[in-house]
């Protein structure tokens, strides 16, 4: 295993360790304060990179189109993912179906930087999520509440995003899920050590993780927001509610001027607490995506209820 090294001890090489929790979670720490954008072509990926995206999510159809087209939504074509990896220097993420660990194995083999085990695709397993510890590539998973987030972390997720309702252009569900997660963390903070055991049972989450969250006052991994961000103000709202960054799916490339809107959302995510800058970023962006009212969505078309 030893590599030839030069004379000084400062230049000796020890076997590097890949896929550690610190490297996986640490990767997400580098994305903080940033915007991760859904893209379906190398051209869109370049527009996203030029606009200041910290990463892109490579997929065949944005959630709004998945909604419209119906049918089974699966992992994207490897050629299409590789084309996007070739096109940009920023990290590339891609989605596997919930519980479809072979899609995840393929994504790892393709060299994607993060795997999103996503409710936007049609679940492959209605009982089990993938065992994410078995992968070198880190995973991000969606959650609607704290218990769900901690179950995903217990399975090895290195990053969490609140689910929201993807492909609607409606921020209401993202707000609900972020408030839920932050609110439940706040409640844990107030409990004494005796009460944490019952809290873990109630949350259906491992006690050790519940204890860690109570001590930290935050998740042990990075928390982003997803599902419904369409405007700079939406992004800033989610940041003010406690998201450490945002995913934007259909909101950019389903709008009138994607390049301009993408750059504006990036600015509003960094200066989320400066209304004057958000106001300037919000000017002259053209048409936003039309959007869907979530309360008119039939139960079977709600992605957030996929996964548990």
């Amino acid at each position: 295993m030893s590599t030839p090294s030069s004379e000084s001890s400062a230049t000796s090489v020890q076997a590097p360790e890949t896929g550690t929790a610190r490297v996986k979670r640490g990767m997400a720490e580098q994305l903080k304060g940033g915007v991760i954008m859904d893209v379906v072509t190398p051209e869109q990926a370049k527009i996203a990179e030029d606009a200041g995206a910290v990463a892109v999510m490579a997929l065949e159809r944005v959630p709004a189109d998945i909604r419209q087209d119906g049918g089974v939504a699966r992992m994207s074509d490897p050629d299409m993912i590789e084309g996007i990896i070739e096109a940009v220097s920023i990290p590339v993420m891609a989605k596997s179906r919930i519980g479809h660990f072979v899609e995840a194995q393929i994504l790892q083999a393709l060299g994607v930087d993060y795997i999103d085990e996503s409710e936007v695709l049609t679940p492959a397993d209605e009982v089990n999520h993938s065992d994410k510890f078995g992968f070198t590539t880190p995973f991000v998973c969606g959650a609607t509440n704290l218990g769900e987030a901690l179950r995903r972390i217990a399975e090895g997720a290195a990053m969490i995003r609140s689910k929201g309702e993807a492909g609607t252009g409606n921020i209401v569900e993202a707000v609900r899920h972020m408030r839920q997660i932050k609110g439940e963390i706040g409640k844990l903070r107030a409990l004494d050590s005796h009460e944490l055991y019952a809290a873990a049972k109630e949350l259906r989450a491992p006690y050790e993780l519940v204890k860690e969250v109570a001590a930290l006052g935050k998740l042990p991994v990075v928390l982003f927001s997803a599902g419904g961000v369409a405007t700079p103000a939406d992004a800033a709202l989610m940041r003010q509610l406690g998201a450490e960054g945002v995913f934007v799916g259909s909101g950019i490339f389903k709008s009138g001027d994607p390049a301009k809107r993408a750059a504006a959302i990036v600015k509003a995510t960094t200066f989320f607490d400066d209304p004057k800058i958000i106001a300037d970023a919000s000017r002259g962006l053209g048409e936003a995506m039309v959007g869907i009212n979530c309360d008119t969505l039939p139960e079977g078309e709600r992605y957030a209820s996929r996964g548990w």
Binding site: V13, V23, S89, P91, D113
Partner: peptide
């Protein structure tokens, strides 16, 4: 050189002597 050590799958930890 950006991303010189590779993509995320190649990200690693190793002890390092620093002058």
């Amino acid at each position: 050189r950006r991303n010189a050590f590779g993509r995320q799958n190649e990200s690693f930890e190793a002890p390092l002597a620093v002058t």
